[in-house]
Amino acid sequence: MATSPTSDQLLVIIDPVALRTDGESVRIAKDVLSAGAASTKVCLPQDPEEFARVLARRGSRRPVVIGDDRALTRAVGLLHRQRELAECVLSVVPVGTVLGVAQALGVPTGAVAAARAVLDGAERRLDVLVDDSDGVVLGALRIPPVPLAPREARDEAAEPNGVDGAEAGGRLWLRTCQSLVRTLVPTRPSRISPAPAPPGPARLRIEVDGVTLIDLDQPVEAVSVTPGTGASGTAAVEVRPLSLGAEAAPLQARGRTVTVSGADFRYRTDAAIAGPVRRRTWTVREGALGLMLPGR
């Protein structure tokens, strides 16, 4: 287990995507942090495996991630799997194009303001959702998943964040084989495929603390699960049933555990899309994440 971090010793982890996207903001943040902290060690990991090694070897330094939502959720996921999330105070300077989660958590999006919050802010304990496959959710969980924006989709293809090293290597191997096949097989005139249809209503059983909120006999249009503000210990669940004629009122509940089951479904958590699965349970971990935010 890592030793307790000291506030004036920082480990600054710069995500390569942030450096490519907005190198000037990265430089500004690094300069502010270096000028304000007693000791600063700066690292630029080139892949998820190196990111994990750097974070695991942080020693007494407080980790500061400069990057987008994927870099933030990757750091949180690693600390959770190392069973060190509760003992670690994390900081983030949001840089990139996918910053909705950081904003929702209260992190300033300007490089200077975010860096000042790292140095002068206060630790705030926040709830997270943890699923039965050890995945962590900081913001909202959505079914069906909200589609990735074009820039997010390009980043997802270029950077296999959120997957472990073996899976990332497997994807790289697969892409290499696919490229080789394309060079060997004669090309044919391409045909324009129609745009994929938006996901239709799903038939899901949703249980909150063991009580069924909606069952398989009533199709749903959308489901959202959001950890409570601060450290409330419960999540807010909203289910929108399929509307037939007059708009159906959403079903709402709060609880510590949420189980979704039914036909294969995908879901979006923070900056990633997961699934398909037939059953998944999310549990609220009260105050599991310590995040540096502007003082109040």
Rank of each mutant, 00 (worst) to 15 (best):
A2S: 10
T3G: 15
P5T: 13
P5F: 07
S7C: 05
S7R: 13
I14E: 10
D15Y: 01
V17R: 03
L19F: 08
R20W: 09
D22K: 04
S25E: 10
V26S: 04
R27T: 11
V32D: 03
G36C: 09
A38P: 00
S39C: 09
D47Q: 07
P48A: 08
E49G: 05
E50W: 00
A52Q: 10
R53G: 02
V54H: 06
V54G: 03
V54R: 07
R57S: 12
R58Y: 03
S60T: 13
D68A: 12
R70A: 14
R70F: 04
L78F: 04
L78P: 00
L78G: 01
E84V: 00
C88K: 00
C88D: 04
L90C: 05
S91P: 01
V92F: 07
T97E: 07
L99Y: 04
V101I: 12
P108Q: 04
A114Q: 01
G121F: 03
E123W: 04
E123P: 04
R124P: 00
V128K: 06
D131K: 08
S133V: 15
S133W: 14
G135C: 09
R142G: 12
I143E: 07
P147Q: 10
L148D: 15
A149R: 13
R151T: 15
E167D: 12
A168D: 05
G170S: 10
R171A: 10
R171G: 06
W173Y: 07
S179A: 14
L180K: 13
V181H: 12
T187W: 12
S190T: 09
S193A: 15
D209H: 05
V211T: 10
V211D: 13
T212F: 07
V223K: 09
S224M: 13
V225F: 07
V225I: 13
T229A: 11
G230E: 08
V237K: 05
E238M: 14
R240D: 14
G245I: 01
T259H: 06
V260C: 07
A263T: 13
R266L: 09
R266P: 00
Y267V: 13
Y267R: 06
T269Y: 05
T269C: 14
D270F: 12
D270N: 10
R278T: 15
T281R: 13
R285W: 14
E286Q: 15
A288H: 12
G290K: 14
L291Y: 05
M292A: 07
P294T: 03
